[in-house]
Simulated assay, not measured.
Amino acid sequence: MHYTLHQLQVFLIITQTQSITKAAEELHLSQPAVSIQLRNFQEQFAIPLTEVVGRRLFVTDFGKEIAVAAERILNEVHAINHKTLAYKGQLAGKLKISVVSTGKYIIPYFLNDFLKVNQGVELKLDVTNKMKVVESLEQNDVDFSLVSVLPVHLQIEKIDLMSNKLYLIGNSEETFNDSFYETSLLDSLPLIYREYGSGTRHVMEAYVQENKLPIHKKMELTSNEAVKQAVLAGLGYSIMPLIGIKNELTHGDLQIIPVKGFPIQSTWHIIWLKGKNFSPVAKAFLNFITQEKARIIDEKFGWCNQY
């Protein structure tokens, strides 16, 4: 047999996602490239590893056993690499972070310098909805999570990272001339919501309930990007985090509609399970965030202050 570590990695991701398309996305490869790697790997075994039924990919029992072995081999290879770097005096290991979808606009800036200095650190970053982020934290699958709404059922510790401002926004087709509108304006605008469980939706609904506002709910979408595109297309209005609409505001494609009581304020938090036993990598990252967050906010997010 002449399978490669790359083939083992590709096959393992395929078994985890049960999809060539999803595996390609996670590996940042094209679908044909993933299919070729799977075929080349399969050719080295007389027993099928996968099968396709009704256009769905399934992993055979034999394939599942090979996936377990592949994961064990890859973990050993990572351990060898980490031990080599540690022996040379470099920080090495995995840093695992789960991030709510809107957090993708900020977390890279808090990782960039840390990863540049510590090139032996391997990052696993999962960007998903709030419910899955909290679930990954609860199951201790990650070192840290980035959220704007704290989970109330978990014992956690946290660092308040930076403020999160949410504004009522629309596209540039309609003109709003008043310097500030009453909150009753929301009753006349068709609003686009995030899906249930989203942190943005939680903050939005809390504001609506606190102010006893009648709301005309237009539609519900499953990502901030989908909401933004719907607003750009003129399908409605929404309450969105400022952090995710910088380019659209700069180019005049979106506008902030001035309403009394806005922006709605929340806070981005880095959280972890109380009493968690940190790895050297996780401990180093926490120290880095504590020491450098003010500088990063000033350098990368100073533009927020003009709104």
Rank of each mutant, 00 (worst) to 15 (best):
V134W: 02
A86W: 04
V152H: 05
C304T: 15
K132D: 14
L161N: 01
V52F: 01
V68R: 04
E122M: 08
I243R: 01
L115W: 03
D113F: 08
H78D: 15
E25N: 09
G54R: 03
K22M: 14
E182R: 14
L186I: 10
I169T: 07
N81M: 08
Y87H: 15
G199S: 08
D187G: 13
T222H: 12
L123V: 12
E26V: 13
G120P: 05
L185S: 07
G199N: 03
L242D: 10
I66H: 01
F58E: 12
L57W: 01
F41E: 01
H6Y: 11
V227Q: 00
V133K: 01
N305M: 13
G93C: 07
Y87R: 11
L12W: 05
G234W: 06
K83E: 15
I66T: 03
N112K: 13
E220V: 09
D298K: 12
I13A: 06
V133T: 14
G236T: 05
N247A: 15
E210S: 11
H153M: 11
I215M: 05
T183D: 08
M240H: 08
T175K: 07
V281G: 04
Y193D: 14
P151A: 08
S179D: 14
V52P: 01
P151W: 09
K165V: 07
V100I: 13
S184W: 01
H78P: 03
N305G: 07
E174D: 14
Q44M: 11
I13N: 02
L232F: 06
L232C: 04
A33L: 08
R201E: 15
I47A: 09
D61F: 03
L189C: 05
V53N: 07
L166H: 14
Q18C: 10
D187N: 12
F62R: 00
F11I: 05
R295M: 13
P108Q: 05
Y196W: 07
N75G: 09
P190D: 14
V149C: 01
T4I: 08
E25A: 14
L125W: 06
K283R: 13
Y105W: 04
W272K: 02
K260Q: 15
V259H: 00
V231R: 02
A46V: 12
L154K: 00
H78Y: 14
A70V: 00
F11V: 05
A284H: 02
S145G: 05
I239G: 04
M162F: 06
V77I: 12
L115A: 02
Q16G: 06
E195G: 12
A67M: 06
N211K: 07
V149P: 00
I20T: 09
R201N: 11
Q255F: 09
F176L: 07
L12A: 12
T17E: 11
I215L: 06
D253I: 11
I156T: 03
A294V: 10
L150E: 10
Y196M: 13
P280N: 13
Q16T: 09
F285A: 08
S188T: 14
